[in-house]
Design a protein around this nucleic acid. Structure first.
Lengths: 204, 204
DNA sequence: AAATAGTTTAACCAAATGGTTAATTTTTGT
DNA sequence: ACAAAAATTAACCATTTGGTTAAACTATTT
């Protein structure tokens, strides 16, 4: 084995960096705090990643890939739209609930540096055009009503992502700041969102 | 007139602080940058607002009140649900499009300090329970199908807010990074979202 | 017009922060 | 076992940053 120690430390750093960057954002995070979180000396951060910016980029890439659920295969299958939709929604809500701070973190940093995105998207295996294409086919088949397929996809993403991204606000406004109550709500949403969308688009 | 100068400077500071805080966030913003933006000496910031934290709080409160559209009167009117919905959606999209960076900014800072929210919400005139109540009434009247009214409200907010909060991402993914194309899309959304929601909830 | 109070500024300061260096320890190849 | 390479650390450093101070300037009061 070439370098068991190296990999280990690098992973520890990345994991610690994720924790701290998500909690504090790029500007709020401190290199010392990341080092403490990883249980190593601060100089090691620079030894492995040169600068804060590069550590952040590596962290961001790793985090970004996390919120891209592995659903492309399903999208391109020949299951009926109801099944695809259910799979997509449940899968995505699960991913986000395991990382509820991710959407806001990513949205924020994206606002600060939009250019950085392009490469990430290309290399992530994310193919929104394929999803749009799928909806277009359904419209042509006549299973769902006529509408801009981009609109439909964006609406579905909105219904999934926003309630999780705004957890602290919603929790306070509608769930008496009770985590259990909020989590139940999101869990139920897997069904609710599916029904909400299907009611809206299916031709009955 | 007691102090024409004082009011003027204070407003200049707050306006500059809004610009910089929205652009950079609490941690990324620099007092010197705010002073420059306002065209004054940095010490004046502390003269008027004591600390960065207090300046931020004042700024945040002012910004938060901006994204609370003035729709409570409409909600409590006896217009049919279609009209209320249309008014709410158009009004809210307009507010957000004038301040597209606000949702993300607020979401981010809220994650960092959820407790700060409670007082703000109370003093803002925002009454989500009243809106929830309205939907409950419609369900009882039988105009819309049975569902958790909180779910419905949160879904509507999602459909309005998320596509604007994630502007850079969507712009890149679906609109070739062309602002005009994206803006047209959002403008059309006023109708799209209304139809999407009505299709989903109305009993036909 | 002189005294007083309020506003604004330039010059400073201490603490924090990202980053570096040189020395030490650990691992690897022979 | 030993030398070379890699990994890790403690001690520093230069810069940045929020915040202060004392002096200057402006408006107000009497």
């Amino acid at each position: 084995m070439t370098n068991i120690k190296k990999d280990n430390t690098e992973e520890k750093i990345l994991s610690a960096a994720q924790t701290v960057f998500i909690r504090k954002g790029m500007d709020g995070a401190r290199m010392q705090e990341i080092a403490d979180e990883a249980g190593i000396n601060k100089a090691l951060l620079h030894y492995y990643f040169r600068s804060k910016q590069q550590l952040f980029n590596a962290t961001f890439e790793s985090l970004f890939s996390k919120i891209i659920p592995n659903v492309m295969r399903m999208v391109q299958s020949d299951q009926p739209i109801e099944v695809k939709l259910e799979f997509f929604i449940e899968n995505y809500i699960d991913v986000l609930m395991k990382n509820p701070f991710l959407p806001t973190f990513i949205l924020k940093e994206i606002h600060q540096d939009p250019e950085f995105l392009e490469g990430l998207i290309r290399s992530s295996g994310l193919e929104p055009k394929k999803v749009v294409e799928m909806f277009k086919n359904e419209i042509e088949k006549g299973t769902i009503r006529t509408m801009d397929p981009r609109d439909l996809l964006i609406s579905i993403l909105s219904l999934i992502i926003f309630p999780i991204a705004s957890k602290p606000l919603l929790s306070l406004l509608f769930f008496d700041d009770d985590p259990k109550s909020y989590n139940e709500f999101i869990e139920k949403r897997k069904v609710t969102v599916k029904e909400f969308v299907l009611h809206s688009i299916l031709i009955k």
